[in-house]
Simulated assay, not measured.
Amino acid sequence: MTGICTGRVAVVTGAGRGLGRAHALALAAEGARVVVNDLGTAIDGTGGATEPAERVVEEIRALGGEAVAHGGDIATTDGAASLVATALDAFGRLDTVVNNAGFLRDRMLVNLDEDDWDAVMRVHLKGHFLPLKHAAEYWRAEAKAGRTPQARVVNTSSGAGLLGSVGQGNYSAAKAGIVGLTLVAAAELGRYGVQVNAVAPAARTRMTEQTFAGAMAAPGEGRFDALAPENVSPLVVWLSSASCAGVSGRVFEAEGGRITVMEGWRPGPAVDKGARWSPAAAGEAALELLAAAATPQPVYGAR
Rank of each mutant, 00 (worst) to 15 (best):
V236D: 10
G92Q: 01
A143C: 10
T46F: 03
G48Y: 02
E255I: 06
T6A: 10
D272S: 13
A254C: 13
E209H: 06
G257K: 14
G214P: 03
A81C: 12
D116L: 03
V179C: 07
A292D: 08
S172D: 07
P296D: 00
A15I: 02
D38G: 07
A286P: 09
R55K: 14
G301K: 09
I60L: 04
A49H: 13
C244M: 11
H124D: 10
V57Q: 00
L239F: 14
D113S: 15
P234V: 01
A80G: 02
E209K: 13
E209S: 07
P131K: 06
T77A: 15
V34A: 03
G47F: 00
E59L: 10
A85I: 13
F224D: 02
W139Q: 04
P52A: 03
R206F: 09
G7D: 00
G20F: 07
Q210D: 10
R276Q: 14
R55M: 11
A62S: 11
H128K: 06
G177N: 08
K133C: 06
L19A: 08
G102D: 02
A254Q: 15
P296S: 01
H134E: 08
S158K: 05
G31S: 08
L39V: 10
I4A: 01
K273A: 15
V247F: 06
I60R: 05
H128L: 08
A173P: 11
G161V: 00
L235M: 05
E284S: 09
S157E: 00
G257E: 11
L235K: 03
T205Q: 06
P131T: 04
E253A: 11
A275R: 14
E263Y: 11
P298E: 00
R250Y: 11
C244Q: 11
I43N: 15
P298S: 00
P296W: 00
L25I: 11
L162V: 05
D115I: 15
E54R: 14
A26H: 12
A291T: 04
Y300C: 12
N37V: 13
N99V: 05
A160D: 01
A275K: 15
L19T: 07
G79V: 12
S243I: 02
Q168T: 03
V110I: 10
H128S: 08
L19D: 06
M1S: 09
S243A: 12
G159T: 13
E188A: 14
G164H: 09
A213P: 12
G301Y: 09
G146I: 03
R250V: 12
D78Y: 12
N170Q: 04
E142N: 01
K144P: 12
A26S: 11
A202N: 12
V194E: 03
F129M: 14
Y171D: 01
E288P: 11
V251K: 14
S240N: 02
S172K: 10
M108K: 15
V110K: 13
R276V: 13
D115L: 15
G65M: 05
A242F: 02
V35I: 08
A87E: 04
G167D: 06
G72T: 07
E284R: 13
G64N: 04
R204T: 01
G274S: 06
